[in-house]
Amino acid sequence: MQLTGENLVLQRGQRTLCEHLSFAVTAGEVLLLTGPNGAGKTTLLRAIAGFLAPAAGAIELKGGDTEQTVGEQAHFVGHANGVKSNLTVTENLEFWAAFLAPKSNRMSHIERIDKALEDFNLLSLADIPAGYLSAGQKRRLGLARLVLAHRPLWLLDEPTSSLDDASATNLANVVNAHVAAGGLAIAATHLPLGFEPARELRLGRVAAS
């Protein structure tokens, strides 16, 4: 499986963020997007997820499910966590497990939820309404979605924001396990994340023409 972008031109509002951008990520590796603020890291991730159409060029997941869009085969972790304060940690996870993987049965949902709680060190918080959680704990809950349903492509935008070192290590373990099992991941970041094997794609600002 390989995700490719060819000759992409991305625009945000009336500004062009990147031009003639090409990249490829193969199963079993992580692509790190780096570059200054406003270079288009988030925009590129959103374009891959299908939220916005590139002004030119094509994004393709080779070897993926041709019936589904790239976005439907991807987990997307953006700046917001998609966490409901009025639901408990477990209820939040139950909803996403059932919503993202409606075809698998309840037993496998429970197994995956248990794994998610364990991987992101949320077991002790399982029955607490998410509104009581700290920013870092909410981020962990948002990230825990990654293991609730199997999707080959992970799109992570600043995944370690508001995480402490131990949680960042947990995340790195989860991502590395996903990649080792033949998954793909793309992460936009300012910091070293400990993901491997990783390649870097440095985005720069497009000069005004």
Binding site: A49, G50, F51, Q68, F76, G78, A80, G82, F99, R145
Partner: peptide, 17 residues
């Protein structure tokens, strides 16, 4: 509103529904 603000709606857009 709330699903748009907390990012849930984006995740729903990537679901099979």
């Amino acid at each position: 509103e709330t699903d748009f603000e907390d990012g849930s709606l984006e995740l729903m857009a990537l679901g099979e529904l």
